[in-house]
Amino acid sequence: MLKKRIIPCLDIKNGRTVKGVNFVDIKDAGDPIELAKKYVKDGADELIFLDITATLEDRKTLISLVEKIAEEINIPFTVGGGISSVEDALALIKAGADKVSINSSAVKNPQLIVDLKERFGSQFVVVAIDTKSVDGRGKVFTKGGTYETRWETLQWAKEVEELGAGEILLTSMNSDGTKGGFDIDITKKVSELVNIPVIASGGAGKVKHFEEVFTKTQASAGLAASIFHFGEIPIPRLKEALKTNNILVR
């Protein structure tokens, strides 16, 4: 049976992880490779690296970082942030990224999804959707959640599937950072609507939040950052708890 995936997300700035981590067994918590290796050892199913800077100089740093990650890491990883053309994606894929994630650039230019799919295949294309409830309806936000687009979340999710996305990374801005649980409502709606895998993101604070998102929605994976970085929920403990509750994990 296909397993539910647990995915830690690492924010990268100028080649280093930010947001901080506190693992006693990691010498340099800012080194993305050290952290990635720790997660692989813990049983993470995939990794996502989000580059939160966009200067040209930092892109070069990112490319060489991706090359090093690809050399060291034996599980799939996605790279996102600042990808607005096939050339941007090609540089990352050549460096060894297994998938690229696009967000604002896809809304601005939906043709990019088609172009990436035709060049690399849909399994390389993750479309990240930042959603927020506005007057009771899920709306798509871009530019780091600062800009409300014309798209309703369900409508945009269906659109990206049709354009050729292989996966959707759905982040609820309502729940992100709250540690109050994943946004079950929108995750359920999107994951039932589309026939591609959906990664639930935003709000994980407890083991039971993962149980909830995997039992109440069709989400294929759960993503979190700080609860993993700060060791609040070690991945081995999370997976044991999920297994106890008959949720299939690796």
Partner: peptide, 13 residues
């Protein structure tokens, strides 16, 4: 056939 999520993506035995 689209009877489940496609692509088949993730860990399976």
């Amino acid at each position: 056939l689209p009877e489940d999520k496609v692509p088949h993506m993730g860990w399976n035995s």
